[in-house]
Amino acid sequence: MTTKAPYTAPRKPSTMLAVLTVVMAIIVVWYAGAIHLNSPQIIDRYEKKELDWSFTQLAVDSWNMKRAVLPSPHQVLVELKKTIIDKKVTSKRSLVYHASVTLSSTLLGFVLGAGLGIAFAVGIVYVQTLDKSLMPWIITSQTIPILALAPMIIVVFGALGITGVLPKSLISMYLCFFPVTVGMVKGLRSPQPMLVDLLNTYSASKWQVFWRLRLPSAVPFLFASLKVAIALSLVGAIVAELPTGGQAGLGSRLLSGSYYGQTNLIWAALIVAAVVSASLVSLVGVVERKVCLRLAGGQEVSHEH
């Protein structure tokens, strides 16, 4: 949405309306899916008890089934209320507590991954040997399934006596340095040759070219990859929590939900994870808009590059 349109554009349907329509559609499909997936068990039960049943009866029962294959939206909402609002945030059953555990390793992993990604990119752009040698390994690293790697990292670090946030955030880091490296290499190489020539005529040092030209030029590329990276970082944190066997974090809630057949809990944890992920991505988006607006000269001057 542009806020400074030079003329009043014909009114488009508001974003809110569009979002609500999609949400409604999802809910309808969800309820229909709940009937489809849960009804065989319900019908089984009816037949065992030799009850007469109508479709309405079947729908109501499949939407309120305990340990449903697919719990219906209102069951998940109840579970969310129970685990977010009714529980104290310090409780082991509170999803806020588990989300905060996951969030802390997500953020640490993101910071480490972004730092590593930028460092690799600078190395690749400035050192020719690294350009040739590092990139193939970086690409290879991303072909190893994280699900295979995560337990090994956790176990190895556990054996060394290192547990908790650090090993988990290393897995996040492993996932999220990659888009940052790729985006940043492209960004650092994005300045027009004429601008590079210009700085050469000033006999500028490599670092002067980096700070005054390459880094500011790379910022839009950096933010595009940071958005991908932070979402991946959350995925990494959740995957890392799976092999820890249900200590804490959204990943462990997903795991214990599936151990005990508590599908409500799985879905509630999934929704919390999605909300956290979307918030993180849009937070990066907000920072991006601020920084890019300033770089585009749309705001007051005060910049240190």
């Binding site: 004429m194 601008l195 210009l198 005054r212 030209l213 500011p216 770089l295 585009a296």
Partner: peptide, 10 residues
């Protein structure tokens, strides 16, 4: 240069 080659963020 042929073009102004100004840095847009400055």
């Amino acid at each position: 240069f042929q073009a102004p080659a100004l840095l847009p963020w400055r």
